[in-house]
Simulated assay, not measured.
Amino acid sequence: MGAQLCSEAKAEAPRVALRFHAEAKGAQVRLDARGCTAHRRATFHDGIVFSQRPVRPGERVVLRVLRQEGGWCGGLRVGFTRLDPARVSAPSLPPFVCPDLEQQSPTWAAVLPDGCALAGDVVSFWVDPRGRLFARVNAGRRLLLRKGVLTGAPLWAVMDVYGTTKAIELLDTTASRFPTPVPTVLSEEAVPGSEATPGEECVICFYHAANTCLVPCGHAHFCSYCAWRVLTDTAKCPVCRWQIEALAVEQGPPALLTGEDS
């Protein structure tokens, strides 16, 4: 493959924000100037990307799905690899992380279940000290994707912008214990305002201020955009599962939104 494995244990990597590795990427991948956004230009494959530094066991890799594309089957793949992307020859990368890269190197990845990585969703994934690969989508339950990840050497995050997943953005978890993405307009629905202060973040996106109350249960842990997505997707409160009848936006002029307002 033209790649070398990292066989020596390295000192713990500094706590710097995760970015996509600038050189080790699939043939169809284009990155933004900051290395935070990966976009697959064409086809449904050749979308492999890596983190620019190793990820410690238990450390969350957090990303947002920015865009989807119809006409394909399957979507985002996530996992970890012992391949040091600094030593990977980009033209040697295979078209798929599963099963191609897994067969060629110590790599462990999995596809997220259908419907779990839609545009606007925040996906976090990590490997625990026992070698189990977990993921969580928004405020949902923890998903066990696979077992058997070898954790005795440095691991880099690997993602495959595959199939219906067209673009993803790595979110910065270093400024606080919450990710702090650059806000991106994901649909024509109303998008919430400014970045929240620590302790006031929406529990779904972890970025915008929690300014919206669900009616009638009264839970108010969500920004207006995420609350609107929950209302239109499931109409059930993520905290108590009570049926949502309306949204009360606390910030700005009083507003009461229902599913019929769309």
Rank of each mutant, 00 (worst) to 15 (best):
V88K: 03
L186G: 14
P57V: 11
D261M: 09
G115I: 14
L256E: 12
I204L: 15
A209S: 13
P192E: 05
L150F: 01
A190I: 07
A109N: 08
V111Y: 00
H219F: 01
K25A: 06
R146K: 11
A42E: 06
P254G: 07
Q68T: 12
V122A: 13
E200M: 07
A227S: 08
L31N: 06
A42T: 06
A109F: 14
V55A: 11
R241A: 14
V29L: 08
E195K: 04
F134A: 04
V61N: 05
I204P: 10
L93K: 04
P91F: 01
T81D: 12
R53F: 11
L145G: 13
V49G: 07
A235R: 02
P54W: 00
T184A: 05
A24P: 08
W126Y: 11
G131C: 08
L155S: 04
F44L: 06
R64Q: 10
K166H: 11
D100G: 02
W156V: 13
E102I: 04
A119V: 05
M159G: 02
A139H: 12
F125R: 05
P216Y: 09
V230T: 14
F44N: 03
K147Q: 10
A38G: 15
E188W: 02
L186F: 15
W228V: 04
L144P: 13
V149E: 00
V122K: 00
S124M: 09
Y162R: 05
Q28C: 06
S262F: 02
L101G: 09
C98Y: 11
V191E: 11
A209K: 11
W242D: 15
T180C: 07
F206R: 15
S92D: 12
R177S: 15
R60F: 09
V65W: 06
P253S: 14
K25Y: 10
A33I: 03
A9F: 03
S262P: 05
Q52H: 14
S194D: 04
F20H: 05
A33C: 10
I204W: 03
R56K: 02
T81Q: 05
G152A: 04
R130N: 09
H45I: 00
Q103K: 03
T173Q: 08
P91K: 01
P14S: 09
C205N: 14
V158P: 13
T212A: 08
Q251K: 11
G152Y: 02
W72A: 12
V185T: 12
R130L: 10
G252H: 08
W72D: 04
L101Q: 02
E102H: 05
A38P: 15
V127G: 08
F44E: 08
K236H: 14
T107V: 12
M1Q: 03
A42W: 07
F125I: 08
P183A: 01
P54T: 04
L5V: 09
A22T: 14
W228I: 03
G140F: 15
W108V: 15
L118W: 09
C217M: 05
W156K: 02
D261C: 13
L171S: 11
A42P: 06
T43G: 03
Y225N: 10
V49M: 11
F96P: 10
A11K: 09
V61L: 05
D160E: 02
W108Q: 05
V182A: 12
H221I: 07
G115T: 10
E8G: 06
P95I: 02
A220K: 05
E169V: 07
F206Q: 15
V97R: 01
Y207I: 00
L186T: 14
P57H: 00
A86V: 04
R15D: 12
